[in-house]
Design a protein around this nucleic acid. Structure first.
Length: 549
RNA sequence: GGGCGCGUGGCCAAGCUUGGAUAUGGCAACAGCCUCCUAAGCUGUAGAUCAGGGGUUCAAAUCCCCUCGCGCCCGCCA
């Protein structure tokens, strides 16, 4: 996966000669105020008679490592101080030779990340955008650690909501040239019409025709859905998200794949009044075919996953928390019933609420992602004008808007419900994309304005602020591995903010342009290291690079 | 009713997977810092019964049980 000098492993090897049970998780770096690296040995030492002896030996061995300057043993923790020049060199060598830290090599696994997959019944709203932001960052993260990644959007064009969209167009706007606002209007009116008439019969009929593979209807529905979908893709593009593959759910009906699903599941099928279901241990009956022989959502989703498994070794799906049970069922069906060895994982997120309550496209209470983006752009432009007057750059405002939007939705643990507040979304201070971008701009400013005078860099006298920055930069590979392993892109978002803060402290602490040439040259390299890593991390979480702020 | 998720300073979060040394940040508040590589920044002060109770352990924000509060799911919908 990664190729880099692993100081933690080198220390662990020395510890293992005395305490073989110590695992990588027992060592932490730069996480607390004790040593640069700390090894938690208490649980191995507590019942050991020769603990003192073992510690003495470990300290001697670790101290002898070339990159270690000091060791101590406090409260059964081994604290190790690192010579910053070794960290500096490890970072610099990687960046000089490969342009990145850590260096990566390609993994053989092919991974699919499915995200967004919203019914194309309206523009992307901020709730769904949370899905997109998480999914896209996850895909970028998996790519960064070496996987071959494809992003996917599963277009649900065969359910009640899609039929309602089509029905709304036919009933309220027939023969007009369809546009997104018009379709949305028809959709909202349709739901009101259902409420007034107390019947959804017309749409149910359409659903049945659709299920029966009525090609004329399918092409008409697809046409209407396609207009909405183009709008969604355009919305996604404004925040830097491109989806590699769109798969239409109706395909699986048209090609007969849902029939294949029934065949493959035949050994596990039960029948009730002509409908078919499977039993999931500890759960209710899960119906996979209606009495009238048509397929259900889960049937088509199984067909979709059979397709995905034919192309990818691992599939990750980002879905709302209301799909938790569905996810569990899918895993059981794919791995236990259909006996696939491909792996399937789900990332669940809680919905975005408004202070006034829930969002709903059909009730017209959702906030479109694009309107938040526009407001962000507007506010960025105001701020830029304060600084540059007429020289304010609209492209920069767009990048600020896209980055801020993404960061705002990504930085929190997806399991926590978030309440969208305009004042928070439009804040550019503190833990925000802008302050991270600002640190990059400052780094670039230094590199552009302060020149290297050719002296041999001094490898001593690292100020604390520089050392902290280097140590934090150095733990990037661990953060990447941690985030990729646990499907948590927010770890990278939190890290990016920490790293940018460490840089800003260094920046405030040391005036690089005024340093002696041999210090200055080293510190310019430190800035370059920071810029390389922060750009790398920002690329994963979708924060864009700007020249000026 | 059953299942799942969440509960950390006034507000918003990190930490929980793998129990261990002073619970980490941001916003808001207060006090400072721009003739100096961009102050959308930095420094400092104040602010926490880690929802409550019980248990396991030498050690619990972290693991287990119970209670409370909030959210989600429990369809031949998607």
């Amino acid at each position: 996966m990664f190729l880099f000098t692993d100081f933690l492993e080198l220390i662990r090897k020395e510890i293992n000669t005395e305490i073989p049970e110590v695992v990588p998780e027992d060592l932490t770096m730069g996480q607390d105020g004790y040593g640069d690296i700390s090894a938690r040995l208490i649980k191995y030492l507590i019942n050991r008679e020769d603990a003192g002896d073992a510690c003495e030996k470990i300290m001697g061995r670790v101290k002898a490592l070339e990159f270690v300057s000091e060791v101590s043993m406090t409260n059964n923790y081994l604290n190790v101080w690192i010579r910053p020049e070794h960290v500096f060199r490890a970072l610099k060598e990687s960046i000089d030779s490969t342009g990145m830290f850590p260096d990566v090599f390609q993994e053989p696994e092919r991974i699919s990340v499915e995200h967004t997959s919203t019914n194309p019944t309206g523009p992307l709203h901020i709730g769904r955008a949370r899905n997109s932001v998480i999914g896209d960052s996850l895909a970028r993260l998996k790519k960064r650690v070496g996987y071959r990644v494809t992003t996917q959007y599963y277009v649900n064009d065969s359910g009640k909501q899609m039929m309602s969209l089509y029905f709304g167009y036919e009933k309220f706007h027939k023969n007009e040239k369809p546009t997104i606002p018009m379709l949305l209007d028809g959709y909202i009116k349709t739901y009101r019409y259902f409420e007034e008439t107390g019947s959804e019969k017309e749409v149910e009929e359409l659903m049945e025709r659709y299920e029966r593979n009525d090609s004329d209807l399918i092409s008409k529905v697809r046409f209407v859905a396609g207009i909405m979908l183009d709008g969604i893709s355009a919305d996604l593009a404004t925040i830097g998200i491109k989806i590699d593959e769109y798969t239409w759910e109706s395909e699986f009906i048209a090609t007969g794949e849902t029939g294949t699903v029934m065949e493959r599941l035949s050994a596990d099928l039960h029948e009730e009044n002509g409908a078919r279901y499977i039993d999931i241990p500890g759960l209710r009956k899960i119906y996979v075919q209606r009495r009238n022989g048509t397929s259900l959502y889960i049937t088509r989703d199984i067909a979709y996953h059979m397709y995905k498994f034919s192309q990818y070794d691992h599939c990750t799906v980002v879905v709302g928390e209301d799909h938790r049970e569905h996810g569990k069922i899918m895993k059981y069906i794919m791995n236990d019933l259909l006996e696939y060895t491909n792996t399937l994982s789900f990332v669940y997120y809680a919905y975005v609420n408004l202070e006034t309550g829930k969002m709903s496209t059909r009730k017209g209470t959702s906030i479109p992602m694009i309107s938040v983006y526009e407001k962000l752009k507007e506010k960025s432009m105001e701020e830029l004008k304060k600084r540059y007057g007429d020289g304010a750059d609209a492209k920069t405002a767009e990048k600020i808007a896209a980055s801020s939007f993404r960061y705002h939705l990504l930085k929190f643990n997806p399991t926590k419900p978030v309440t969208f507040r305009w004042e928070d979304a439009l804040d550019f201070n503190g833990d925000t994309a802008v302050s991270i971008m600002y640190s990059m701009v400052r780094a670039s400013g230094i590199l552009n304005k302060v020149s290297n005078e050719g002296a041999i860099p001094n490898m001593e006298n690292f100020p604390e602020s520089e050392k902290s920055l280097l140590l934090l930069a150095y733990i990037y590979p661990y953060k990447l591995m941690d985030a990729a392993k646990s499907d948590k892109p927010e770890i990278i978002a939190n890290y990016a903010f920490m790293l940018s803060t460490a840089f800003t402290r260094f920046y405030e602490d040391v005036k690089i342009s005024e340093q002696a040439p041999e210090i200055k040259n080293r510190q310019l390299e430190t800035v370059k290291i920071f810029r390389t890593i922060i750009e790398d991390a920002c690329n994963i979480i979708g924060i864009m690079k700007v020249d000026k702020l």
